[in-house]
């Protein structure tokens, strides 16, 4: 078939996902479903991408950037399971893909890029870490602007306030999740036992929502209530992306070990206390030495006195009293 291997560039993964971007996830899932021999490059450097974003599929000198373009190209190369579908089911694929783009995508964009808390706590730090230095300064901001335009221009308008737009977007997204859940029912995939391109899209949109640790989790909570959708996402992750799950587990283990190390630190507490006491003692003695050398305190050594008076004898015996007196004088 293909003489040259296809190369697919996607955003890096995290939280047990092969990628964090819904579109990258959709393409990855589609490739896994239909067993496309593709070399996946997980990267954070969009320098070479024609649009400054991922996914990018390169094959025979051509680059495809949009999900629909990639799907149709793969279909042209006879990869994919959509051929098994009846014409009616293919019509459903078109309709539900549009539903996802129209109702769910704006909410995801809003959640990731326009919700202040999520953007500051999760999105921007993540992309700033993933993207190499000079690009990381302005790419997240640019993407945010794009997302804002998209949500506000398509969902809002001049006479609708931002709050209302937000409420509308999330309401539509929740409705969309319900519709998907109804459509899926008890089936393994949307159209029975074989996954289609629609399943890939659904997986792409839902997986980050389910797995990413987002502070604003109203959509997450709604998704958890749709049992069958969660089941599909988890199944796909376990069956098709076990490596990433393992990676996450290893990471978790490492973190656990780290936290264990911290607790062993705690068990060396007595040692630390000794060090602290030593340091404190050293500091005190240094201060005392300085004070003595600069004449702030005077210590009288009265042993030399040939005929010690009762007064000086008490002075000699109780050194600290002498010190106290010295400090008092100064």
């Amino acid at each position: 078939m293909a003489s040259e291997k296809m190369k697919l560039e996607v955003w890096k993964g995290d939280w047990g996902l092969p990628s964090v971007d819904p579109h990258c996830l959709a393409v990855l899932a589609y490739c896994k479903y239909s067993g496309v021999p593709v070399e996946v490059i997980k990267t954070g450097n969009p320098w070479r991408s024609p649009t400054g974003n991922f996914p990018v599929l390169r094959h025979k000198g051509e680059a495809y950037c949009k999900v629909t373009d990639i799907f149709s190209y793969l279909r042209k190369e006879h990869w994919g399971s959509d051929f098994e579908l009846s014409t009616k089911q293919s019509a459903d694929v078109v309709a539900f893909s549009a539903l996802l783009e129209e109702k769910l995508l704006p909410a995801l964009l809003h959640l990731w890029w326009m919700d202040d808390k999520t953007f500051l706590d999760v999105t921007r730090p993540w992309y700033a870490r993933a993207i190499p230095f000079p690009l990381s300064l302005f790419l997240p901001g640019r993407t945010q602007k794009k997302a804002e335009l998209r949500v506000n221009l398509t969902k809002g308008g001049e006479s609708i306030s931002e709050m209302e737009t937000e409420a509308k977007v999330y309401k539509e997204a929740k409705e969309c999740l319900n519709l998907l859940s109804h459509k899926l029912g008890e089936k393994q995939y949307m159209f029975g036992r074989l996954p289609s391109s629609l399943d890939a899209l659904v997986f792409g949109y839902l997986a980050p929502l389910l797995k990413a640790p987002l502070p604003n989790n109203q959509l997450h909570n709604h998704l958890i209530q749709c049992d069958n959708l969660c089941r599909v996402v988890n199944d796909v992750l376990v069956t098709f992306f076990p490596a990433d799950l393992r990676e996450m587990e290893e990471k978790k283990k490492k973190e656990e070990q780290k936290s264990k190390n911290i607790s062993t630190d705690n068990s060396e507490f007595p040692n630390r206390r000794r060090n602290m006491i030593l340091a404190g003692f050293f500091a005190l003695s240094a201060m005392a030495a300085y004070a003595w050398s600069s004449g702030l305190i005077q210590i009288q050594i009265s042993d030399i006195d040939p005929a010690p008076s009762p007064n000086s004898r008490t002075n000699n015996r109780r050194g600290p009293a002498g010190v106290e007196a010295g400090v008092g004088q100064s």
Binding site: V94, A95, A98, E102, E175, L179, H182, K183, G185
Partner: peptide
């Protein structure tokens, strides 16, 4: 039915979208 209604909504968004 719920399935029919979700299909209807999907086709409606397809019309709006495309």
């Amino acid at each position: 039915s719920d399935t029919d209604r979700s299909e209807m909504r999907a086709y409606m968004s397809m019309l709006e979208n495309i």
